[in-house]
Structures are given as C-alpha cells and as structure tokens.
Design a protein around this nucleic acid. Structure first.
Lengths: 82, 82
DNA sequence: CTGTATTTGTTCGTATGTATT
DNA sequence: AAATACATACGAACAAATACA
C-alpha cells in the first residue's frame, strides 16, 4: 500500500546508505531514466522521512559512484551510461 | 520606538516567526495599509538582517493567515480586511 | 515586438547547534 | 572522541512572471 520506502532509523545500515541504495535501485530499475531530473533534495528528504543532511550524504555517494550529476540551482540528473 | 526591529537569532522564537510577528504588527498598526505593496522580499531580508529563506517562511505564514497576497513577478500586497 | 529591469519562485550549497550513539 | 542524524538558518545560482519603455 504505502509505496513509501521504509527507511529504518534503527536498522543495521546507516540511514544515508539506505537512502542511497534505494535511490540507486530506482535508477537501475529505470524508474528514473537517464538525463531525467530527480526530485529536489528537500523533497526527497520529505519522501524518505529523513533529514536533508542524510539526503545530501546519499547523493554524495551516488555522485562518487558516477550515477548522478548535480548542478547548482538546477537540480540533480541521472547520468546516462556511456 | 526603535524602528529597528530586533530579530534575535538566539532568541527563544524561531527567526522566521519573529519576522512574521513583526510584519503582522506593521500591518495591524496601519504602517502597511490595505492594498499597499510591501517591500520586495529580498529588501525585507536586508531590513531585518535575516536570510531570504527566513522572509519566505515568514510571508508563507502571513499568507496562510490571510494577511497578505503574493503575485509572482509583481509583489506582495496587504489584503484588505473584509 | 523586443528587449530590459523588477520581483517572486525554485533548487543546490554551506554552516551551526543539539542530541544520540 | 567521533560520526551520524536532525533542524534551523544563511548563501548562491538558476528560473519564471510581470511591467514597461
């Protein structure tokens, strides 16, 4: 029903890692297609029920992994796999 | 008296609530008359010595309270009392 | 009609304080 | 002590709507 991903603050995995994993899965699954703009970071924080800080850590991971690209003032985009 | 609005960043009340309260008082007092356009949000931020973000939060409160109306690209106006 | 200036709207970036682990 | 997590606030970049010459 929910469709809302369960981020468990008391889970074995760190909150921001849980968020990063879930976001990566959405990219892998094609829910977020290449070149598409992701929801704003603050919206994602709301969506996942976590702090902006945690989303920032999560997106930092995905950026390091080359999955996304972020542009100041514009948004975050799914990087096409070359 | 002072004319200088003392927004205390370390006060018990949140910054944007302090700003909202001060703005509401200016409307109540008649300093800002009905249908008048308020100073631009960024100017208010300067005036109060707070961030644009805080002014946005404050005006959002006043909009919810029905004290002001904002039009994209035009400005923010004091709502006439019914 | 075509710019240009003004003003609000959106989004990412950074800093700080507190609490918890 | 150090890292995580949350909340607030400030700052910067990008964008859209409006007005007007």
């Amino acid at each position: 029903m929910s469709g809302v991903p369960a981020i468990d603050p008391n889970g074995a995995e760190l909150v921001y890692v849980q968020v990063a994993n879930h976001m990566a899965a959405r990219i892998e699954s094609g829910e977020w297609e290449p070149n598409r703009r992701l929801p704003p970071e603050r919206e994602l924080a709301d969506f996942y029920g976590v702090s902006y800080d945690s989303v920032r850590r999560a997106t930092a991971m995905l950026r390091e992994q080359g999955l996304i690209v972020t542009v100041h003032g514009r948004g975050t985009f799914v990087k096409p796999r070359h």
